[in-house]
Amino acid sequence: METYLHYALFISLQFCFLIQLYFLIANQSKLNKFKPVESLPEVLIPVSVIISARNEANNLRENLPSILEQNYPDFEVVVINDCSYDASGDVLDEMKEKYPRLKVVTITEHDRFKTGKKFALTLGIKAAKNEYLLFTDADCVPASDNWITYMAANFTKPAQIVLGYSPYKKTRNFLNPFIRFETIKTAINYLSAAVRGDAYMGIGRNLAYTKTLFFGAKGFAAHMHVISGDDDLFVNQNATADNTAIEMNPDSFVYTDAKTTLNSLFRQKKRHFGVGKLYKARHRRILSIDAASGFLFYILLTLCLVFNFEPLLAAGLFMFRLIFQLIIYNKLFKRLDGKGLLWYLPFFDAIYYIYLNTFGLIGTFIKTTQWK
Rank of each mutant, 00 (worst) to 15 (best):
I125G: 00
Y99L: 13
F75Q: 11
G116T: 00
D93E: 14
I80W: 06
L102K: 02
R101L: 14
H110Y: 12
Y85W: 04
T115I: 03
E94G: 13
G89P: 00
R101G: 03
V91K: 01
K118L: 13
R101S: 06
F119L: 02
N130W: 03
E94I: 07
G124L: 07
N130A: 13
R112W: 13
G124Y: 01
N81F: 09
S84G: 08
D86W: 05
A120S: 14
Y85T: 11
S84R: 01
L121M: 11
L92D: 02
N130P: 02
K118D: 08
D93A: 14
H110L: 13
D111N: 14
I125E: 02
K126P: 04
F113S: 03
D90P: 07
T106E: 13
L92Q: 12
K96Y: 09
E76H: 05
K103G: 03
V105H: 10
N130G: 02
D82P: 03
T122I: 07
N81C: 12
A120R: 00
C83W: 05
I80Y: 07
T108R: 09
S84F: 04
L102T: 05
D82L: 15
V104K: 09
G116K: 00
C83D: 11
A128S: 14
M95D: 00
D86S: 05
V77F: 08
L102W: 06
H110R: 12
V105C: 15
K118P: 08
L92S: 07
D93T: 10
Y85M: 05
C83G: 02
I125H: 00
G89Q: 09
L121T: 01
S88W: 02
H110A: 15
K96H: 11
K126V: 08
K129W: 06
K117A: 14
A127S: 07
Y99R: 06
G124E: 04
D86L: 10
K129D: 09
L102G: 01
V104D: 06
E109F: 14
E94W: 03
V79T: 04
Y99Q: 12
N81K: 08
A128I: 01
V105Q: 15
V105K: 14
T122Q: 03
L121D: 02
E109G: 08
E76M: 10
G116A: 00
N130D: 12
D82R: 15
T106D: 06
G124I: 07
S84P: 05
V78W: 01
K118R: 08
A120W: 02
T108Y: 12
A87Y: 11
H110G: 07
K114Y: 12
F75E: 11
V104W: 06
E131M: 05
K96Q: 13
D93I: 01
C83I: 08
P100Y: 00
V104M: 09
K103M: 09
L121K: 13
N130F: 07
D111C: 13
K118S: 13
D90H: 04
L92W: 11
K126S: 12
D111H: 14
K103V: 07
Y85C: 12
V78H: 00
E97A: 12
K126Y: 14
R112F: 15
K117S: 15
N81Y: 06
L123C: 09
N81H: 02
D86T: 06
I80E: 00
A127N: 07
